[in-house]
Design a protein around this nucleic acid. Structure first.
Lengths: 262, 262
DNA sequence: GCCAATTGTCTTATACGGTAGACAGGTAGC
DNA sequence: GCTACCTGTCTACCGTATAAGACAATTGGC
């Protein structure tokens, strides 16, 4: 029933090296360790290393020259998108890049318990669940799953969601949002997300979960976002604040037109 | 050299099911389809399904009862350690947990180009490179690679590094640190890191890169930290700040004894 | 030109992920 | 208690990914 099984170790090493290249750990032009070196380093045979390098070569990430070595190809494929802490892409306009949104799904249903709990909803209440894909210059970089209590979700249309920022929709509906909590973590891409983001299954993803609250304390939005780390990262500036023992790092607030150095 | 490599199809299905559980598609308490059903559904053999379920069980996501079926477990296994934005574990003491540090390596050498660049060092200058493991209640949760310019590194000993926080060492040495930048992303665990953190190769990791600057603008510390996302996450609170078009989320500064709600 | 190191290309043998099927023991419903 | 379905465990077998090693061809430095 099978016939073609994909390599396993080779794929793993492929992903690892791809990651090191993408993160700049292996800068363009750098020469990789020799195949035997990589083999012992990863505790696999040279054949496996070669397979991994084959995949990298096929992706155009490396150049292999017999007798010379293997080199990271000099090309900056895509410059990653940088967001500040509050997850606002403040520099997009300045960078002349365009972002888009694709609405992948839209429905009303019973939310998962975790979401219902976070939003402080009563059992039985429904939410509007939408899945959106954010694109930069046509390339997807984030996968967003949003839950909004049904009564609030009904105040705007599916069409609205595909064009207007959600926060604006909420405020347009008379909901005041002042407070939110968010947590940042990491996961692996499942089949669905991998497909949508154009990744291999098992690729690393940045995850962000944000819950937005109305002044009353009720939750009005639950966002679960997954980002391609090669196209998106959180950056922030810190200063030392406080006195004595309490002296610690503290984030610098983002001022109006500020942009990070590139 | 390995002996235990995870299957591929099984892993695929594992991730898929994990996603369905995490998203609430398979709510806690729900009964999964039988193994034969899952097998035909995914077009794989029952053995493969079993392997996927094994992984889920090991992650504490499901309960399997012979004769009855397989059920989504009602509680999340371990509560991760929570840090605020500035990467300070302010609640550890309150939680009654103890953290420790293990120094894995310590040496002076030429830094990688990316590090030298970030620290603004001249070519040829060396850095002190140290690798440390942070533990919580004896379990490792973060892997820290630190680079410090040689002249600064020489002001403290290897012994110091294993006991005193680096920032304190720097300030003790007369270096004033006021400013830092940091970026948060995600990667996969390589062989070394996986080993140290007790993970499988290819597990997802939270990554943090921080560069600390002296008032002169020179870089004094380059930190590359990798966290187990199941034991560590960044949490923060946000409020809406600014006016009109500029209105956006802004992090709430961490005040002295503040603690996040649990 | 020579030498060392590299990638490219074979060979052979083994390990293992995957399939297919059977069977034992537990559980729940009727 | 009977039955249907479930998980747990085992066997046998296939295809290929991987291991281990040898050898050729190429490159770059000396």
């Amino acid at each position: 029933m099978d016939g073609s099984v994909e390599p396993l170790k080779a794929r793993r090493i492929f992903l690892l090296l791809k990651e090191r290249i993408g993160s700049g750990d292996l800068p363009p032009g750098a020469r990789l360790p020799g195949e035997p070196a990589l083999a012992t380093e990863h505790g696999v045979s040279r054949v496996t290393i070669r397979r991994a390098l084959d995949m990298l070569a096929q992706d155009g990430l490396i150049d292999r020259r017999a007798g010379a070595g293997t080199f990271v190809r000099t090309q900056s494929p895509v410059r990653p998108l940088v967001a500040d802490l509050s997850n606002v892409l403040s520099h997009i306009v300045e960078m002349g890049r365009r972002t888009g949104i694709r609405l992948l799904s839209f429905a009303y249903a019973q939310p998962p318990a975790a979401v219902a709990d976070a939003l402080g909803m009563k059992p039985g209440e429904r939410t509007q669940r939408s899945v959106r894909l954010r694109l930069i210059d046509g390339a997807p970089f984030s996968y967003l799953i949003t839950h909004v209590p049904e009564r609030i979700g009904l105040t705007y249309s599916e069409q609205d969601l595909a064009t207007v920022p959600l926060l604006a929709l909420l405020e347009r509906s008379g909901v005041t949002v002042e407070r939110a909590t968010q947590a940042i973590g990491a996961t692996l891409a499942g089949p669905e997300v991998a497909e949508a983001l154009g990744l291999e299954i098992g690729s690393p993803l940045l995850s962000l979960t944000r819950v937005v609250y109305a002044p009353s304390g009720d939750g009005v939005e639950h966002l679960h976002a997954l980002y391609r780390p090669d196209r998106y990262s959180f950056e922030m500036e810190l200063t030392r604040a406080g006195e004595g023992e309490e002296r610690r790092w503290s984030p610098v607030p983002v001022s109006g037109g500020r942009r990070n150095a590139g």
